[in-house]
Amino acid sequence: MQVDDIDRRILRQMQAEPGVARADLAERAGVTAASLWRRIERMREAGIIRAEEAVIDWRKLGWEIEVSVRFTLDKTQPGFFDEFLDAARKVPEVIEIQTFLGQVDVRLNVIARDMAHYQEIYRQRILALPHIADTDALMLISTLKDTAELPL
């Protein structure tokens, strides 16, 4: 699917203010409401717009700690990778899973209410994950840039 300047304007406006009413979005993008609806629907069908979702600030809900836990996996058993990922997906405090090529195989982003809670998660859930050969944890001190906006 070709994305034109009007589609880019729509996407920029959606990124800038995700909860904006469709009528206001159409006006800001310079199109009619019907045209806006058709274009958004076309971009959804093409997979350009995957979802419109609420972004919840977990810190405001009492989660204070964020730790990036990196894993090198034991690759000696068949199915090791899928088994690790399946188990990691079941840990509720894991908010992100990334896989890599290189020395580190997987990175989990883990949140906790405080250090005692993180210690509990780490000992009971993280270290219980299958096929771990090595692990390293990095505690987040500050986030300097966090955006999902694309330069459209």
Score class of each variant (00 low, 15 high):
M1Y: 02
Q2E: 14
D7R: 02
D7L: 01
R8K: 15
R8G: 02
R9P: 05
L11I: 13
R12C: 03
Q13G: 05
Q13A: 14
Q15Y: 10
Q15E: 14
Q15F: 08
A16P: 11
P18D: 07
A21F: 07
A23H: 02
A23P: 00
D24V: 13
E27S: 13
E27W: 03
A29E: 02
A29Q: 08
T32A: 12
T32S: 15
A33N: 11
L36S: 11
W37I: 01
R38I: 05
R38P: 00
R38Q: 14
R39N: 09
R39L: 05
I40H: 00
R42M: 06
M43C: 04
R44V: 05
R44P: 01
R44H: 11
E45L: 15
I48Y: 11
I49V: 11
I49H: 04
R50I: 08
A54Q: 15
A54R: 14
I56K: 04
I56D: 01
D57E: 13
D57I: 02
W58H: 04
W58L: 15
R59K: 09
R59G: 13
K60H: 06
W63M: 09
W63I: 07
I65A: 00
I65T: 04
I65N: 03
E66A: 12
V67G: 08
V67R: 12
S68C: 03
R70P: 00
R70A: 09
F71A: 02
L73N: 02
D74Y: 09
K75L: 00
K75P: 01
K75D: 15
K75R: 15
P78C: 07
P78A: 10
P78V: 13
G79L: 07
G79S: 09
G79Y: 08
F80I: 04
F81N: 04
D82Q: 06
E83K: 15
E83Y: 01
L85W: 06
D86C: 00
D86R: 14
D86Y: 12
A87E: 12
A88F: 12
K90H: 08
V91D: 07
P92R: 13
P92H: 10
I95C: 13
E96Y: 01
E96R: 14
Q98Y: 13
T99S: 11
F100Q: 09
L101I: 10
L101P: 00
L101K: 06
G102L: 13
Q103M: 10
D105M: 09
V106S: 09
R107W: 03
N109P: 00
V110H: 10
A112I: 10
A112Y: 05
D114P: 03
D114G: 08
D114N: 15
M115V: 08
M115I: 11
A116F: 03
A116D: 15
H117D: 15
Y118C: 04
Q119W: 11
I121S: 07
I121Q: 02
R123G: 01
Q124I: 03
A128T: 08
L129W: 04
P130Q: 05
H131W: 06
A133E: 15
D136F: 15
D136T: 09
L138P: 00
L138G: 11
M139E: 07
L140C: 09
S142I: 06
T143N: 09
L144V: 10
L144K: 10
K145P: 04
D146C: 01
A148C: 00
A148E: 14
A148F: 10
E149C: 05
P151R: 12
P151Q: 13
L152C: 04
L152Y: 14
